[in-house]
Design a protein around this nucleic acid. Sequence first.
DNA 1: TAATTGACTTCGC
DNA 2: GGCGAAGCCAATT
Length: 110
Amino acid sequence: MKRRSTAPADKFTARVLTAARRIPPGRVATYGDVAAMAGRPRAARAVGNIMRTCGRADVPCHRVIAAGGRIGGYGGRETFKRALLAAEGLIVSGGRVRDFDRVRWPQRKR
DNA sequence: TAATTGACTTCGC
DNA sequence: GGCGAAGCCAATT
């Protein structure tokens, strides 16, 4: 066994990508949620960076949005992201996802 | 290695 | 409802 106390960033990144991949079509998750799934509920910012650098088609980064159902960003192409979400069957209005609590994954109540 | 940046979140005014 | 500041984390330079 070896260092387990350290927080392997590589692992965290892999976890984030995996979590994003686990998002079923027609659903969306927030950066904070994905970060929480990866094991760092406060790494929402890091998740954003990871998504930006994900460079993987396996990861539907467009399904990951900001908190409150906001589109967040997409390399300056949030409009394109909105279109992708709409193609997933989601309804985006005013830069926010309609029925966000219904399409959110996982559905959790606060 | 250190410092800066950035697709975030939340509270306060 | 809009604006600002603080906190947290990873990637990049």
